[in-house]
């Protein structure tokens, strides 16, 4: 139990997928200009990540490994992620229309996205068992959410401050992300994993 808690915390804080691993930056900088959108994106990313890691794990250990086809991992996982997005889209539309009305539009944007693809890949690369993979992907999703919400709040304040002309927009967003990342670096002493 304790081991899973450590894995979870490390995925959220220490190996934060956005701020230490540089994954999902396209969404991170694209969406974080609005707080509402960031909230929705976080939910969509977490949901897709967990489902995709589950299927990715099954395919990798029950299909690809026995058949010695592990060099197909990349191709398979891309397809798994894309179809997971499609599947989550259909299921939420049918069973949770309210949720879909709020967050459905973000689903399509993550069909081909590095953060969602990387989680299943990292899971199988580290030979995680099924429970560990799921815990890891939930942690990754929550870490992504945390980072994007912090960034969105900062950017709301940033909109009212004076930024040098050439740094407006993406430039200052990157420097801000760098400072955030520096803050997250402080967590790395917390748990030795």
């Amino acid at each position: 139990m304790f081991e899973y808690l450590l894995l979870f915390l490390s995925a959220v804080l220490i190996n934060n997928f956005v701020l230490t691993r540089f994954l999902g930056l396209c969404i991170f900088f694209g969406v974080s200009s609005s707080f509402e959108a960031s909230l929705g994106m976080g939910v969509a990313v977490t949901a897709v990540m967990v489902v995709a890691s589950f299927f990715g794990w099954l395919v990798y250990f029950f299909v690809l490994t026995p058949l010695n086809l592990t060099f197909f991992t990349t191709i398979c996982f891309v397809l798994i992620v894309a179809s997971t997005v499609q599947m989550v889209d259909i299921v939420t539309r049918r069973f949770a229309p309210k949720l879909y009305a709020m967050w459905g539009i973000y689903l399509m944007l993550i069909a081909t996205n590095c953060v969602v693809l990387s989680v299943p890949l990292i899971n199988v690369e580290n030979d995680f068992n099924l429970v560990r993979s799921l815990v890891h992907s939930v942690g990754a999703g929550i870490g992504f959410w945390l980072a994007i919400l912090i960034m969105a709040s900062i950017r709301e304040k940033l909109a009212h401050s004076e930024v040098p002309e050439s740094f407006k927009g993406l430039g200052i967003a990157f420097v801000t992300a760098g400072l955030l990342s520096l803050a997250f670096l402080g967590f790395s002493g917390m748990i030795a994993l």
Partner: peptide, 9 residues
């Protein structure tokens, strides 16, 4: 990590 962000910025 932070250096990467700041350099690109």
């Amino acid at each position: 990590a932070p250096g990467g962000f700041i350099t690109i910025g």
